[in-house]
């Protein structure tokens, strides 16, 4: 019998997707004071997928562990993931650099922290979001798979596990359509939008999540250097595009397009 799934789901706390980010006065960071934060949508899909794997077959999943690297505030993010159905959670706490904020971790540093955590927890499957909607890097899962020398399946739109063999089959979204891969455990999967629609958490799930086990570790505990390799020199708003007004008929539309040299 192949081993049961010991799943780690890394999650990130990000500015809520419905909020337009504002650049701070010194033009080098995004304003976070008084801004609503949420669990990154792709991470939420990853937690949901782990829970669905457990629900698909009684003996398939041994444990679902959440992990987040960030400030103490990421505890709230971990609670949202626990309410979705994960078993326990670890915060890799990044100390504050001043009163209000922690160092913004880069994907390579996060991947190194996750590698150490995954080894420590004897996980054999990592399911995580394809990207965080703040930095949009789309790197951490691939880096983690490289550091662990595990198989990787990114942009997953369908995941199936063959219980007899322990082989995982993943359909992934590529530019021209879909591609299907298979790999034995251990494996890193990153999630795309169409993989699933996360469930709504009920009040009783949120209450239950408060009783689940959470622990804290530090980057030093994991023996990882998290210093930055990149420096943000400046942030700016993209050039504003202003509309050219409306026309009142198809003929006027064609006329305008000819005038603009578009047809």
């Amino acid at each position: 019998m192949p081993p049961r799934l010991n799943i780690v789901v890394p999650v990130k706390r990000v500015i809520d997707f419905a909020i337009k980010p504002r650049i701070n006065a010194s033009k080098n960071a995004i304003e976070t004071n008084g801004v609503k934060f949420s669990l990154n949508p792709f991470c939420e899909i990853a937690v949901e997928e782990a829970v669905r794997l457990r629900e698909s077959s009684k003996d398939l999943v041994e444990s679902i562990t959440l992990v987040s690297a960030g400030s103490a505030k990421a505890q709230d993010t971990l609670r949202s993931g626990l309410a979705l159905g994960a078993d326990k959670a670890t915060l890799i706490e990044i100390p504050a650099i001043d009163d209000s904020k922690s160092l913004e971790l880069e994907p390579l540093a996060v991947a190194k922290l996750l590698k150490a955590f995954v080894k420590k927890s004897n996980a054999n499957l990592v399911i995580m979001g394809k990207q965080a909607i703040d930095d949009d890097s789309n790197q951490t899962g691939q880096m983690l798979a490289g550091l662990l020398n595990w198989s990787q399946a990114t942009n997953a739109s369908k995941v199936t596990v063959d219980e007899a063999s322990g082989v995982v089959t993943v359909s992934r979204e590529v530019d021209g359509g879909t591609e299907t891969l298979s790999a034995p455990l251990p494996l890193v999967i990153t999630t795309d939008l169409r993989l699933n629609t996360p469930r709504y958490t009920k009040l009783q799930d949120i209450m239950k999540a408060k009783k689940k086990k959470t622990e804290k570790v530090s980057p030093e505990d994991l023996g990882v250097d998290i210093s930055s390799r990149l420096e943000i020199l400046s942030l700016s708003e993209p050039p504003k595009r202003t509309g050219g007004g409306k026309v009142d008929s198809v003929d006027a539309l064609i006329g305008k397009l000819k005038e603009l040299g578009a047809i």
């Binding site: 890097s137 951490t140 691939q142 990787q152 390799r229």
Partner: peptide, 21 residues
Amino acid sequence: AFGKNVLPRAAALLDVQQISD
């Protein structure tokens, strides 16, 4: 899809923080 999938893994092997997109 090609570069997003492959280059971050190579960056990790080379201990480099990639710059995306």
